[in-house]
Amino acid sequence: MDIEPNAALIVVDVQKGFEDESFWGRRNNPDADGNIAELITAWQETGRPVVFVRHDAPVPDTPLRPGRPGHDFKDYVQERLEQGSGPDLLVTKSVNSAFYGTPDLDAWLKQANIGQFAVAGIQTNMCVEVTARMGGNLGYQVLLPLDATHTFDLTGPFGWKQSADELSRSTAISLHGGRFAEIVTTADLLAAIRDQKDAS
């Protein structure tokens, strides 16, 4: 796997409000936060840009609404955002896709001549998936480390229910099958970055 020297890492909605299990329900992948933290560190240490995306929920009854404690980034993300010395970006949005936020992510990536990005964060089957799909449609090479995302159990129409693990697998299969993104692991990305450092 080749990681471009200017490949971006897009970190989606890693906010404290997603820790409210009474609101969201049961989550999967308890290792997601550690993997996200490792990816941010690797990107920043190699001078690659990190895009931090924050969801400014417009509805009143959500932990992600601006002004509530849950709106803030989780501590490990906030620390890396503040410590980063590279060409990082903060995007705010009120919908599922990071490409419909402020500032314009597509314009920023194109101006920086970035054609490849990895996307991690919360929720796998919501904002992470939609951002990956749009990135693929816009012509970017998208890498999605599935183990650096998580989601929650969900009930849909007709009483249908899917667990968080099932939803994550569905996302991976759909993105892979539709050629929107290449599904990888955190270890894959870290190994590729390490190999490039050793080669140089």
Rank of each mutant, 00 (worst) to 15 (best):
D56V: 07
L189C: 07
A191R: 14
D56R: 15
S200V: 03
Q141W: 12
E82R: 10
D188T: 07
Q83T: 07
R26K: 15
V53H: 04
R194C: 01
F52K: 09
P49N: 05
R169D: 13
N137W: 08
F52D: 09
N29S: 03
N96K: 14
S174L: 00
D33F: 12
E45M: 10
D104G: 09
T155F: 01
T92W: 05
P5Y: 03
A32I: 01
M126Q: 10
R194E: 14
K197E: 14
N35M: 01
F99N: 06
D188R: 07
I36Y: 01
L105T: 01
A98L: 07
R169T: 10
A132I: 00
W24R: 04
D104E: 07
G86C: 13
P87K: 12
Y140K: 03
E166S: 07
R194T: 04
N28C: 11
L81T: 06
A37S: 14
D61Y: 08
D106E: 14
G86I: 04
Q141R: 15
P60A: 13
R169Q: 15
A98F: 05
A181F: 04
G159K: 01
Q111A: 15
I173H: 09
V77Y: 06
K161F: 05
A57V: 13
G177A: 10
K93Y: 09
I36R: 02
E166I: 00
S200D: 05
Y100P: 07
A172N: 01
T155K: 11
T92Y: 06
F99G: 08
G34F: 02
N28Y: 03
P58F: 08
G135F: 06
D165L: 08
G156T: 00
G121T: 03
A32S: 13
S170E: 13
R194N: 10
P63V: 05
Q44T: 08
D165K: 07
S85E: 14
G177S: 13
I122D: 11
D33I: 00
I122K: 10
N35W: 00
D104S: 12
G159P: 03
Q111H: 13
G156C: 00
D153Q: 05
K93H: 11
F73S: 06
G25V: 03
V130P: 03
G139T: 01
G86D: 14
Q111M: 12
G47W: 10
H176Y: 09
H71V: 09
V50D: 06
V12H: 02
Q44K: 11
W160V: 01
V50M: 07
